[in-house]
């Protein structure tokens, strides 16, 4: 691992962790996480609240130490090479944080002044540009404490864009944004990716991630339980049967007897869904017809990322303990 970039499938990795582990007391917050984010990817980093996403991100950026494992960002070991690596990394970590009594522009100026690689002569220009990129030009000279939640979030993204970045680590970038703002962030991520940046975006808005991500990784209770290209990960999910019938009771009975699992009467009147468990649509249709169950419509559906997410990480509101 010390020899530069670990390769997987021939491509270089912008983020690579190996067996990353972090404990808080007796609790294992991050357990043997091996992230693989290829250069140029938009990597959706998913997981329920408390699953260890933010702790992982903080370790990647050298804010907290790892108890086990190694990290390479852009080919260099972290946190040892932080001074080399981090100028090329823009980050939004667990929400924006700025000085409330400074203006938006002054807050960016403060961060720019702290960057020993930032050219002071282009500072004002870069600040204006990154503010305009997130649509905050009009609020540049407003104090941060007067910003709305969405404006604060935008300023956080602007700070990550002060310099040209090779890697952007964005933790919940659409938090607090209205639908227009969410859509803008999506466009921004696409345009940054088009410029060649690698983007690791953590989010709980799965539909959002599904629209922009090329790769996903799913965390649950501190473990990375699934990782790969979006297509690969979704392919691993069980396809579901969607049946329209006006005899839902007998239909459920037939499907269960046939060996389909998770047979549920749908939300709409007269629909039944079930995991197909390897049975074909034709075979199922024949069984239903033989049992005199009227089949008004039948199809096989690909699960959305959200269904997969829930099937992998469990349902309910309980924060992972």
């Amino acid at each position: 691992m010390t020899q530069g970039v670990p390769d997987i499938g021939g491509g270089a990795l912008a983020v690579a962790s190996e067996g990353l582990t972090r404990r808080f007391g007796h609790q294992v917050a991050v357990d043997q996480v091996s992230l693989r984010v290829p250069v140029g990817a938009v990597y959706g980093f998913l997981g329920p609240n408390g699953s260890g996403k933010t702790t992982t991100i903080r370790m990647l950026l050298g804010l907290i130490s790892a108890h086990e494992g190694s990290i390479h960002l852009l080919g260099s070991a972290m946190p040892r090479s932080a001074a080399l690596v981090l100028p090329s990394v823009g980050a939004l970590i667990e929400g924006p944080a700025f000085h409330p009594y400074l203006t938006g522009a002054d807050n960016l100026r403060r961060l720019d002044a702290a960057d020993r690689t930032a050219n002071p002569h282009s500072s004002s220009e870069r600040i204006a540009e990154s503010l305009s990129r997130v649509g905050l030009s009009a609020a540049a000279s407003k104090r941060y404490r007067q910003y709305s939640l969405g404006m604060k979030q935008r300023l956080g993204i602007a700070a990550a864009l002060l310099q040209p970045r090779k890697l952007l680590i964005l933790d919940e970038p659409t938090n607090g944004l209205d639908p227009q703002g969410t859509r803008e962030v999506r466009h921004l991520i696409r345009s940054l990716a088009a410029d060649g940046a690698t983007i690791l975006v953590s989010s709980h808005l799965l539909a959002e991630v599904e629209q922009v991500a090329t790769h996903v990784g799913i965390m649950s209770a501190g473990r990375l339980i699934s990782q790969g290209t979006l297509t690969e990960v979704l392919a691993g999910a069980e396809p579901r049967l969607l049946l329209f019938t006006n005899a839902t009771g007998p239909a459920q009975h037939v499907l269960s007897r046939l060996g389909l699992s998770d047979v549920l009467a749908g939300l709409g009147k007269g629909t039944v869904t079930a995991n197909m468990c390897g049975h074909g649509v034709d075979e199922i249709t024949r069984a239903l017809v033989n049992a005199d169950v009227p089949v008004l419509g039948i199809s096989q559906t690909r699960p959305a990322l959200e269904d997969l997410f829930v099937s992998l990480t469990g349902e309910g509101f309980d924060v992972a303990s």
Binding site: A82, A83, P87, E94, P100, A114, R116
Partner: peptide, 12 residues
């Protein structure tokens, strides 16, 4: 106020 984490990842 959380600005420390952003200063340190600038990095300083």
């Amino acid at each position: 106020i959380g600005t420390l984490r952003y200063l340190l990842t600038v990095p300083v």
